[in-house]
Amino acid sequence: MKTLLFWCACFVGWAAGPAQGQTTSPAVVVVRLFDNGNNLIMDIARPTGAPEHREFKPRDLRAPGAAAERTRQLLAQLYQEGYGLTSTYGGGDHLGSTTTLVFTKRM
């Protein structure tokens, strides 16, 4: 009887969660934003496919808040695809600012 209980406990433990060594790595999307006040450049690297490059010239950004709206549209698209913001880092100088956003797929 003890052996039967032991094996039942083993099977319940095994079925309760996946082993760490068998889990897959999460899907990661990296977005680099460069903004110098005139241009907005978005470089997007996804887990599959070629990296995407979006560049918005001053004529595309004439309206107040246009750069923020373009960024909001990209973030909304990633959230709809199931990605969540994991980390961010950035910097800048007299030429403009660069921000890097890291998204991972939510399970």
Score class of each variant (00 low, 15 high):
Val30Thr: 15
Met42Lys: 06
Asp60Leu: 07
Glu69Asn: 09
Glu81Met: 03
Thr86Cys: 01
Arg62Val: 12
His53Tyr: 03
Gly96Ser: 03
Gln20Pro: 09
Ala45Thr: 12
Pro58Lys: 04
Pro64Asp: 13
Ala50Lys: 15
Arg70Asn: 13
Tyr83His: 01
Val30Arg: 14
Ala50Ile: 15
Glu52Gly: 02
Phe34Leu: 14
Gly82Thr: 04
Ala27Leu: 10
Asn38Met: 08
Ala45Tyr: 02
Pro64Ala: 14
Ala19Ser: 10
Pro26Val: 10
Arg46Tyr: 11
Ala19Trp: 06
Asn38Trp: 10
Gly21Leu: 14
Gly96Trp: 01
Trp14Asp: 00
Thr71Ala: 14
Pro51His: 15
Arg70Gly: 08
Ala63Arg: 15
Val28Arg: 15
Thr48Gly: 01
Pro58His: 03
Trp14Ile: 00
Leu95Arg: 14
Pro51Leu: 13
Tyr79Leu: 12
Gly65Tyr: 06
Gly49Glu: 05
Asp43Lys: 11
Pro26Asp: 05
Glu69Pro: 03
Ala50Phe: 15
Gln80Thr: 14
Gly90Arg: 14
Ala50Pro: 14
Pro26Thr: 07
Asp93Trp: 04
Asn36Ala: 09
Arg54Leu: 02
Val29Gln: 01
Leu95Ala: 13
Gly21Ser: 10
Glu55Ala: 06
Gly92Ala: 10
Leu33Val: 15
Gly90Ser: 06
Glu81Ser: 00
Gln80Phe: 12
